[in-house]
Amino acid sequence: MRLQFILSEIGLGLRRNLSMTISVVLVTFVSLTFVGAAGLLQLQIDQMKDDWYDKVEVSIFLCPSDSDAPTCVGGEATADQTEALREQLESEALEPYVEQVFYESKDDAYVAFQERFADEWWAQGVTADQLQASFRVALVDPEQYQVVSDAFTGVTGVEEVRDQRQVIEPLILVLNRSSLVAAGLAAVMLLAAVLLITTTIRLSAMSRRRETGIMRLVGASNLFIQLPFMLEGAIAATIGAALSVAGLWFGVRYLVEDWLAGEVQFVQYIGTDAVWTIAPILLVVAIGLAAVSSVVTLSRYTKV
């Protein structure tokens, strides 16, 4: 009896304010889509960082014989210089930052070069002497690149210190900014959603003042009086959340998995499973929105 009664009250309320209900659904849909998009971007960024930061290393290129760099006026890096660099890399000062050091001699570089361009006719003409020896340094924390760079830039015998991370950094920056923008829009839309849900619940409560007045008079409990209104808001918001999850799923499925993954291949993309990761969060946000709005409104409109 109770459940059936509450359900029929909810149905009545939702239908009586149909246009408001639809607007609540749409606003939560749009706002949660922004929240979700920000979340997905963040997941994408994390994934790219995980993917790449493990692989990237700092390369310290030693002077070749014909370099114009001011640190290379002495010609090709000598064995002493090379040894000094290695000692410095393995010194205690740099120990917290450096995970592994690998020395790639000119011959190693030649082998790698020939392997990489084995099919190219012009590669046959390249000799080991035209290539450059280098230290490949894997860092404990890739963010600490600057420490290594500062230590070796300008040292005699070092032509250049290059961080592979610099290649992907701009991309991550762009993604980070987009995710910030999405989060900002989400915040504005969430505010609009709260206000709209508040108004809807208030309208609903006012249009049923007669009923709630009688309920209070005959001793219905507060929860019983307020539950239908709360659930109305929660149901509308949940539908909005479901729509946004569906929207994000289709977005990832067709935009990222089908299109972007085909066009730009060097990136590992998130898949639709990422949408399921953030779906519960969206649902919780939706229900939270409705709950906050209900508490704010109902404490004023249906008090004992």
Binding site: M1, R210, E211, L217, V218, F224
Partner: peptide
């Protein structure tokens, strides 16, 4: 203070429904 869209029976039953009395 009756509910205009409910019948006589429903108006009286309403008082019991909202305090959770069984059917």
């Amino acid at each position: 203070r009756l509910l205009p869209n409910k019948t006589v029976f429903e108006n009286v039953a309403f008082a019991l429904q909202v305090i959770g009395k069984p059917r």
